[in-house]
Amino acid sequence: GQTTVQVRVPYRVVGLVVGPKGATIKRIQQQTHTYIVTPSRDKEPVFEVTGMPENVDRAREEIEMHI
């Protein structure tokens, strides 16, 4: 079944991970077949990644490449 993982990043890289108009996070979602919730600016900088476990792992690696 599907799993949801929280990926915490430093505040300063949230914009990098999301990309211009969300382009980068969309690409990560498409490439890894996951659904990613982006943290809002006034909340903790935690991305929520949902999908099959192996896909979630890949998405987390993609996010962490920006750190």
Rank of each mutant, 00 (worst) to 15 (best):
T3E: 08
G1V: 10
E48L: 13
T34R: 04
E44V: 07
E44P: 08
E64M: 14
D57F: 11
T50M: 08
I25S: 03
V49R: 02
M65A: 15
Q2N: 13
R12T: 11
Y35K: 15
M65R: 15
H33P: 01
V7H: 05
T50R: 07
V17M: 03
Y35M: 13
Q2V: 12
I36S: 07
R27G: 05
V56R: 02
R58D: 03
M65D: 10
R8I: 08
I25Q: 01
V7F: 12
R41E: 13
P10A: 03
E54C: 07
P39D: 08
D42G: 14
M52E: 11
A59P: 01
T34D: 07
V13W: 12
I63F: 00
Q6F: 13
F47L: 04
E44R: 03
H33R: 11
Q31E: 15
I28E: 00
V14P: 03
V18L: 11
T3I: 15
Q29S: 11
D57S: 10
V49Y: 02
T32C: 05
R60P: 04
I67V: 15
T38H: 05
V7A: 03
V49T: 04
V49N: 04
E62G: 04
R8P: 11
Q2S: 09
V13F: 14
Y35D: 10
Y35T: 15
D57C: 12
V14F: 09
I63W: 02
T32H: 07
V7K: 07
A23W: 06
V9D: 01
V49M: 02
V46N: 05
P45K: 08
G51T: 00
Q30N: 07
P10W: 01
T34Q: 00
R12F: 12
N55Y: 01
H33L: 05
M65P: 03
H33G: 14
E62Q: 14
P10H: 01
D57Q: 12
A59T: 00
G51S: 00
H66T: 15
V9G: 06
V46R: 05
E44N: 10
R58T: 00
E44I: 00
G22K: 08
V37L: 09
Q6E: 10
H33C: 08
P45E: 08
M52S: 14
I25W: 02
G15C: 05
R60S: 05
V49S: 01
I63L: 08
R60F: 06
K26Q: 09
Q29E: 10
K26I: 00
T4E: 00
Y11W: 15
I28H: 02
H33M: 10
K26V: 03
A23G: 07
Q6L: 13
R12A: 14
R58E: 05
V18D: 08
I28R: 08
K21S: 10
E54S: 10
P10N: 00
A23P: 07
I63Q: 01
Y11I: 10
F47W: 08
G51L: 02
T38E: 09
P45M: 07
R8G: 02
H66R: 15
E62T: 06
A59K: 04
V49E: 07
V9W: 02
T4R: 08
R58N: 08
Q31D: 14
T3L: 11
T50G: 04
P20T: 07
R8H: 09
G19L: 00
E54H: 09
K21C: 10
H33T: 03
Q6T: 10
Q31N: 13
Y11G: 13
Y11F: 06
M52N: 00
V13G: 11
M52D: 12
H66Y: 14
P20A: 08
I28S: 04
N55T: 04
K26F: 02
K43D: 15
E62L: 15
E64V: 04
Q2M: 14
T34I: 01
K21D: 11
R27T: 08
E54A: 12
A23H: 10
I67P: 02
I28C: 01
V17A: 07
I25M: 05
V5Q: 09
G1R: 13
V18K: 06
